[in-house]
Design a protein around this nucleic acid. Structure first.
Length: 205
DNA sequence: TGCCAGGCCCTCTTTAGGGCCTT
């Protein structure tokens, strides 16, 4: 039986050298916040050296330079610590399929595993906020007027904003759909519902 | 050789194509 806490979740975000670990891309930064009962109780942020120079595009996109990575610990060292951090927690990320691919690849490289499941804040937001101009993390933060410090595309900042978006979605579901406390499983199920069936899905919860 | 992400989701759909989203 898992010891996974029902009201505990870890929201994470990777900065990487590119879009696909299958094409040789590696993680260069991991940021995460641990939420318990809607409160941040722990954070994790580390740069990691991928073993090769990152492109000028990535330096500009993330603000993470090759000189910053030169003195960073290796991916293997950082991800070993991160595996200890997430343990068997359930996980949330914005466009989770992207972060899951890198988490799986980096942990596979050091023969570590994790037991939690992923929920995707982007798929859920596409269903709850169908009228939003877009469903990028920054766009949703602006649309929902979520407090932020203006830092984007850094791992801890993005994981903090994703966490605030996650809590906002939980609040909106409780207020608009009279759901007592949406469980992680309900959020996962919502992300798998067709957009046209969201209202009927929520009315049955 | 020449290509190069992958999954979701909509539509002029399902015998397909293209936009969105992540770096």
């Amino acid at each position: 039986m898992s010891t996974r806490a029902a009201n505990s979740v870890i929201v994470l975000d990777f900065e990487t050298t590119g879009l696909s670990p299958n094409q040789g891309d590696r993680a260069i930064e991991i940021g995460a916040v641990k939420l318990h009962d809607g409160v941040v109780i722990d954070t994790f942020q580390e740069l990691m050296n991928p073993g090769f120079r990152v492109s000028g595009f990535i330096e500009g996109y993330t603000g993470i330079s090759n000189s910053m990575l030169a003195n960073a610990a290796s991916c293997e060292t950082v991800m070993d610590s991160f595996a200890d951090f997430i343990r068997d927690s359930n996980l949330v990320a914005h466009n989770a399929s992207f972060d899951k691919r890198f988490l799986d690849a980096e942990l596979d490289a050091i023969s570590r595993t994790y037991d939690g499941e992923f929920a995707c804040s982007m798929l859920i937001a596409r269903r709850l906020y169908q009228e939003a101009p877009n469903h990028k993390l920054g766009g949703l933060v602006e649309y929902k007027q979520i407090e932020n410090d203006g830092v984007f595309h850094r791992a801890l900042a993005d994981s903090e904003m994703t966490a605030k978006l996650w809590l906002t979605m939980l609040d909106d579901m409780q207020l608009a759909h009279h759901i007592s406390l949406p469980s992680f499983k309900l959020m996962q199920d919502l992300s798998k519902t067709t957009k046209s069936q969201v209202k009927s899905f929520l009315s049955k919860t």
